[in-house]
């Protein structure tokens, strides 16, 4: 498995911490799945933050803070600095939202913010689209990880454009690639890993499932299956049938 800014992940599942029915269920989802990375955020102090932080620390996972909800470079950069201080990590999941309905990233501002943050010593995990040129620009800006969307955040539609994601994998063979957002089912996560992606980041599909802990475990099993399948070099699909049972030696019975 590739490293993320020099850090090896225990497994390829990055799990969000939002929208769970209760903190206990969130904790159970992490324990049952074994996810090694938790995404977190910053919001205005209301008193609840300290308890949440204590719980995340007790999970013993790596923490990836986000800049969710930021719409400008300035806002994202300030949020990243605040996150670095609060969570004591250089990692930042850089989100720069460009469109209200689709939550599509504003890739122009994303590249600029990635450049500023890299110069400030951050290790940027950019939430991006599957556009190859944007990917190139992000790498040139200093990113060593790319996180293309599978589908819009929370939509559960899976890999909307598997062709583009396959092309991205081929274009950047040595860059750690993470499918971030859009996963709805374990089969989507397995598909991402079968394409050769290095990790999957998801939240809603687990947190909003009827049984989040069971779904978290299902996601991890699917991710492991997909990863193993990729390593096992799958066959190419073909249009015509090809008998798998040998023809030679068949009894002549007609």
């Amino acid at each position: 498995m590739k490293t993320f800014y020099g850090t090896s992940l225990p497994n390829p599942l990055m799990l969000g911490t939002a929208q769970y029915p209760s903190p206990a269920i969130l904790e159970q989802a992490f324990r049952d799945s074994g996810a090694g990375v938790a995404t977190v955020s910053l919001r205005r102090e209301s008193g609840a933050g300290q308890t949440f932080w204590q719980m995340v620390r007790e999970l013993g996972v790596m923490v990836l803070p986000n800049t969710a909800g930021c719409h400008t470079v300035k806002e994202a950069v300030t949020t990243a600095h605040m996150a670095r201080e609060v969570f004591d990590t250089k990692w930042i999941k850089l989100e720069l939202i460009g469109h209200t309905d689709s939550l599509q990233p504003d890739v122009f501002q994303l590249v600029e913010a990635a450049r500023v943050l890299t110069e400030d010593g951050f290790q940027v995990f950019p939430y991006t689209t599957d556009d190859l040129i944007v990917g190139e620009r992000l790498l040139a800006a200093g990113c060593e990880v790319l996180m293309p969307w599978g589908a819009p955040i929370g939509s559960g539609r899976g890999l909307n454009n598997a062709y583009a994601l396959r092309a991205m994998r081929a274009e950047f063979p040595d860059v750690p690639l993470v499918i971030d957002a859009g996963i709805g089912l374990p089969s989507h996560a397995a598909q991402a890993m079968e394409l050769g992606y290095d990790a999957v980041l998801l939240n809603t599909a687990v947190a909003r499932a009827g049984d989040p802990a069971a779904m978290a475990k299902a996601m991890m099993l699917a991710i492991e299956a997909g990863q193993l399948a990729h390593q096992a070099d799958p066959i190419e699909a073909r249009d015509m049938a090809e008998a798998s049972t040998p023809v030679i030696g068949k009894a002549f019975l007609s």
Binding site: T17, A18, Q19, T39, L42, R44, A68
Partner: peptide, 10 residues
Amino acid sequence: IEVVAPMQGG
């Protein structure tokens, strides 16, 4: 002045 604390996130 903005004061922020850890919060759940995706």
